[in-house]
Design a protein around this nucleic acid. Structure first.
Lengths: 136, 136
DNA sequence: TAACTAAATGCAACAATATTGCATCTACAG
DNA sequence: CTGTAGATGCAATATTGTTGCATTTAGTTA
């Protein structure tokens, strides 16, 4: 739970539970996933916990086409500050298992749009994930 | 209103009004934008209208980081079927005016992820739009 | 280890957003 | 002009997220 302490977030039993859930999953999870994983909890506290985690850069929000909203730990693939996503960080959704993963791309070329100044870009990809490609 | 008729959607006064709003704006609009533009309306009908339009490919939904949900006409930049977005279609949000645009990129290279099969990709960009870059 | 304090929690109440069922109406095909 | 599938509008309800406030607690300091 040093992740929390490092970000100046108090380590409470509830926050530990929530962190466990994130650490157990290697893919991004939804708020519903968290709610289902918790045995007993207060919704308001959960929402505030998520907000704290997001503000401090412990987790980040992922929005995919089709109203899919997920959360994922930040330090897995990036080390962002205040919503900035650098590196070759891509959000990938598998069409077989539907899971969303934060992955790194080999190369991530900068997009150009005539007349527009592009400062940040985020790529969302769909296809088949590593697991579904070659089932264990 | 041939757009609607072509997609086998009945042309009703309400749908005409909604279409007008889409046609008046060259950027994507939110449900709230539509609600504000309508003088008097039934929310349920509006939601159902949006759902019909989306299902038939008249409009498409755009989800941007930060819980930003917008709607835009499809035929402007793409000719998709059932949520498939092909072409060099990019969703761009201006950090000055906050508007979201559907734009085309010069080139849009295919992203590669080791171990994953990438079939589709969508790019969300942020920066400064054409209008804010050089104010009229 | 005891006490303090800012941070976190949990309850109640609320606000905003979206959906379902059903009766009525209407666009448009024949 | 008429029939009917599709669209509308109302009521009721579900889902999702927020605010205020009193209470508790993590982590610091004495």
């Amino acid at each position: 739970m040093d992740i929390l302490r490092d970000k100046n977030l108090r380590v409470t039993p509830f926050r530990k539970e929530v962190m466990e859930i994130f650490l157990e999953n290697e893919h991004a999870i939804s708020i519903q996933d968290i709610e289902e994983a918790l045995v007993e909890f207060d919704r308001i506290t959960l929402y505030r916990t998520i907000k704290s985690f997001t503000n401090k850069g412990v987790i980040h929000e992922i929005v995919m086409p089709g109203d899919i909203r997920k959360l994922a730990l930040c330090d897995r693939v990036c080390d962002h500050e205040e919503g900035l996503h650098e590196h070759n960080h891509i959000h990938f959704q598998c069409r077989m298992c539907d899971e969303v993963y934060c992955v790194e791309s080999d190369e991530l070329p900068q997009v150009k749009i005539p007349g527009f100044i592009v400062e940040e870009q985020e790529i969302q990809a769909k296809g088949v994930c590593k697991k579904c490609k070659k089932p264990s």
